[in-house]
Amino acid sequence: MAAAICTAEEQERLRAALRGLLLPRQDRLHWRDESEARRLQITAGIAALSAALHSVVVVAAPVPDAKQERARRLCLETLHPALEAHGVSLIVQEQRTPQQNRRDLQMVDALRSAHLLSAAVRVEFAQPIEEPLLWLPDTIAGAAGLAREGHPEHLARLSLAIQHHDVPMR
């Protein structure tokens, strides 16, 4: 999982720049769907924005397919408090199914009950097709995944200040 941190003042400029990376008839950027040439273009475009961004990457790996939701909860357990430590007061996560969103919010409640996340941090959901800022963590996570596989060029190209956390599967 990854998060991209920016100020409220920078959001519109970043959205416009990200939309500018779209190809004709493309409605969103999605790392998994992009060719290698497009990934190079996208990382170059995001690198040009890097002064306005900070990111946090949380990795629980290796993860068997049957443990994906468990790994997600472990990542959220690290990611949300790390974001609050960076001064983030609004976390916008990619919308999934209603049941999956409820589980994510239950995790947020558990973090609050354990005093790992304050009530001042709001968590909302958005669709990537509607919120271009969600394309940033998707790209960062994709580049970080390739770096873990021995291909660090995309992550290095992003030129972002990245705080990396490895989370052991338990």
Rank of each mutant, 00 (worst) to 15 (best):
A52I: 07
A61R: 11
C75E: 05
L155N: 00
A71P: 07
L116R: 15
A119D: 14
P168D: 05
L49Q: 09
D27A: 05
Q106E: 15
A8H: 12
Q99W: 10
A110N: 08
A71T: 02
Q11Y: 00
V108G: 01
S159T: 03
T7M: 09
A48I: 04
H54Y: 13
W135H: 08
Q163H: 15
V92M: 12
Q100N: 06
L133N: 09
R15I: 10
A156N: 14
A17L: 01
V123N: 05
R25Y: 05
G142K: 00
M107Q: 13
H54N: 12
S89V: 15
H151V: 14
A147I: 07
R157E: 05
W31M: 05
R15P: 01
A44V: 05
R28T: 02
H54K: 15
P132N: 02
L116F: 01
R39E: 06
R112S: 09
L111G: 08
I5Y: 10
S50C: 08
Q41M: 11
H151Q: 15
R32N: 07
T78K: 05
C6Y: 10
C6F: 08
A156D: 13
R15D: 01
D65S: 13
A126E: 14
V63P: 03
L23H: 10
L146C: 06
A8N: 11
R25N: 13
L74E: 02
P152D: 14
R70A: 07
R170M: 06
A161N: 14
A141K: 07
G145H: 07
L158S: 08
V59E: 00
A48P: 02
A61W: 07
H154W: 14
A48W: 07
A119N: 15
A47M: 09
L23P: 03
R70I: 06
A126W: 11
L76Y: 03
A3T: 03
L76P: 01
L14D: 00
E10I: 02
L117Q: 09
T7G: 15
G150E: 10
V108N: 02
R25Q: 13
Q41G: 04
F125P: 05
L40I: 07
I5T: 04
T43V: 12
A3L: 04
G87R: 12
V56T: 10
P24H: 02
R25H: 09
L23F: 11
D109Q: 12
V59T: 04
L134P: 00
V121L: 06
Q163C: 13
L49S: 05
N101P: 09
H151I: 13
D65I: 09
I46V: 15
L155V: 07
R157N: 12
L116V: 00
Q41R: 12
P64H: 08
A66G: 09
D104Q: 11
M169K: 01
T7F: 14
H165F: 15
G142Q: 00
W31C: 03
P152Q: 14
T43A: 08
G20S: 04
A61F: 01
